[in-house]
């Protein structure tokens, strides 16, 4: 019950610590030349991605309380701890597995845009539904941060979330936030810095409970892929996409471009 309070305290401590201070943030607006890292903001619709984007870049993406407000990709820059970041605000998406056109932009960027860190913004009051996308993203990347937004609404609804447990379950940093009140930005930036520079190593959760029939098929195919492409890290995920008939992956494979996937997968560990 008191996790949120506990974390409030953590946040306060953080404000006082020398390195991770919001004062080290310089908003760069649309100026993002010579960036060191690319950060993507992904998540379900209406979870506050654009609000966080505006907070960090000083830009003025439209926000609104309805799913689907952002329909195009937006980019901006900021400097934090002497690193230049390019931040990409994506349209909200419920899933990476669909082929729906409106979600193409987000899907393509997460898969092929090679972000160095993906910030997954979730609505803390609808955690279970949001975890669908989170678990899917964790299948492809191991550099992710969970921004647990809308904590004020969680409190208003008399709910609480065990942050430590959640971080343990997912294997990535979890940051409680109230983006509209600009709360939690420090800690988010701290983790962006640590994860992008490799100081913090994520151990993202991978799906365990596939049905036996599917598991067998995925394993067989993934073994076959591994034989021919020993350097491809997350072959299980590629196998799953092939079994779904995902044309982008089939094309990438046929044209030999599958290597393009490697950078964004380069740190992924193969769960056996």
């Amino acid at each position: 019950m008191n996790n949120w309070n506990l974390n409030n305290k953590q946040m306060e401590q953080c404000v006082n610590c020398p390195v991770h201070n919001i004062d080290n943030l310089v908003k760069l607006g649309i100026n993002m030349s010579n960036f060191d890292y690319v950060i993507a903001l992904a998540g379900n619709p209406n979870t506050g991605k654009s609000t966080i984007f505006n907070n960090l870049t000083g830009l003025k993406q439209h926000t609104g309380n309805w799913p689907g407000k952002t329909v195009a990709r937006a980019e901006g820059g900021f400097v934090y701890n002497n690193n230049n970041y390019k931040l990409v605000d994506l349209p909200g998406t419920y899933s990476l597995l669909s082929t729906s056109t409106d979600e193409d932009i987000a899907r393509n960027f997460i898969l092929f845009g090679k972000p160095d860190v993906t910030i997954i913004v979730v609505d803390s009051t609808r955690l279970e539904r949001n975890l669908n996308l989170v678990l899917q993203i964790l299948e492809i990347t191991d550099r992710a941060i969970l921004a647990l937004n809308l904590m004020d609404e969680l409190k208003r609804n008399n709910m609480s979330i065990d942050l430590r447990q959640l971080a343990r379950e997912l294997g990535i940093p979890v940051v409680p936030m109230e983006a509209r009140q600009k709360k939690g930005m420090d800690e988010l930036l701290k983790y962006v810095d640590e994860v992008s520079s490799g100081k913090f190593i994520c151990k993202p959760r991978r799906l365990k409970s596939l049905s036996p029939k599917i598991d067998n098929a995925v394993n067989e195919l993934s073994k076959k892929i591994k034989e021919q492409l020993p350097n491809l890290p997350n072959t299980r995920w590629v196998a799953m996409r092939l079994l779904e008939g995902d044309q982008q992956i089939i094309d990438a494979l046929n044209s030999g471009e599958i290597g393009n996937l490697e950078p964004s997968l380069k740190h992924a560990e193969e769960p056996v």
Partner: peptide, 11 residues
């Protein structure tokens, strides 16, 4: 198709 996937995605 799409309709089914959408419903599934929504939980």
């Amino acid at each position: 198709g799409q309709q089914r996937r959408r419903l599934l995605d929504l939980g």
